[in-house]
């Protein structure tokens, strides 16, 4: 398969990037630091049934920082994937060989998600070791699920990054694009929604109640989708209960819908990038 050859090459190549190793190291430090901090500072621990330190509480504690850091790694891994090769000319070596342009995008996506997964897994493996040393009670299944979802979440941002990198021949423009996306999803999404509500209802801060479209709009943000899925995956409810919506809630608040949204963010940006990359002159 052509894309597996590209993915292998890309994994080797991107895996040797110093920037990436710096980011991964940051991730390891962050996860380890968080583990130590969580174990040492009681105020951070979830006020559970017996106020015990639990891996579940740790995971909840990690969720916020992960939502901030994983997108940065994903976007950074993605945004030069195509644009960088077009800009410096190495794409001519790549496409002198019998690869389809769609295989190039697919291979790069897989290669870079693998790099991301390695970086996340190493980071959390170190954190887990610290956790086990400090507190032996850990539910490995839940923790593994968390890591898996974090990789899926990161894959969505790799896809967005690759989408931008396939839309433009300039890494500068792709870089501006991912910076904008990061701001949008992390800081501006809610504000924009509130602005739209103000425009529609004429009042600020949802004084007339939160409309349904706003709830849907919130779920479309990959960060919210990730939080919703994670919340369900780590809850004590059965899988079926956790995934379906609460009675009376609209379907789009359910975790399975959030999971679909997350998967759409994994697939669509890279797919749109592929369409564009297939049609351009190099």
């Amino acid at each position: 398969m052509s894309w597996t050859v590209v993915a292998q090459k890309d994994f080797r190549d991107a895996g040797r990037s110093k920037t990436l190793w710096a980011v991964s190291l940051l991730f390891v430090l962050f996860a380890t630091g968080a583990a130590i901090m969580y174990a040492q500072i009681p105020a951070l621990q979830q006020a559970g049934a017996n106020s015990a330190i639990s891996s579940l509480g740790f995971v909840n504690f990690l969720q916020g920082p992960v939502t901030i850091l994983v997108p940065v790694i994903g976007l950074m891994l993605g945004y030069k994937a195509i644009s960088g090769e077009v800009e410096n000319g190495s794409v001519k070596l790549l496409l002198s060989l019998p690869h389809r342009r769609s295989s190039v995008v697919a291979g790069k996506f897989v290669g870079r998600v693998t790099v991301l997964a390695v970086s996340i897994i190493i980071g959390f493996a170190v954190a887990t070791a610290v956790m086990l040393a400090l507190y032996p009670e850990l539910s490995p299944g839940r923790f593994a699920l968390f890591v898996l979802l974090a990789v899926l979440f990161g894959a969505a941002y790799v896809s967005i990054g690759i989408g931008f990198s396939a839309l433009t021949k300039s890494t500068t423009k792709a870089g501006a694009g991912i910076f904008g996306v990061y701001l949008l999803f992390n800081w501006l999404w809610g504000t924009i929604g509130m602005g739209v509500d103000w425009f529609i209802s004429g009042t600020l801060f949802f004084r007339q109640g939160v409309p349904d479209w706003y709830l849907l709009y919130t779920q479309l943000n990959p960060n919210s989708a990730f939080r919703t899925v994670l919340g369900a995956a780590l809850s004590d409810a059965s899988v079926n209960d956790a995934l379906t919506a609460q009675p009376g809630d609209p379907f789009f608040l359910s975790a399975w819908f959030a999971l679909l949204i997350l998967i759409a963010w994994v697939v669509l940006p890279a797919a749109l990038g592929t369409l564009r990359f297939r049609s351009v002159d190099l």
Binding site: K9, R12, D13, R16, S17, N88, G89, S90, K92, L93, S96
Partner: peptide, 15 residues
């Protein structure tokens, strides 16, 4: 090709 660029981080053999 013309105006190509090699992969800086890969060795000759890997190319």
């Amino acid at each position: 090709p013309d105006g190509y660029h090699v992969y800086d981080r890969l060795t000759g053999r890997q190319h």
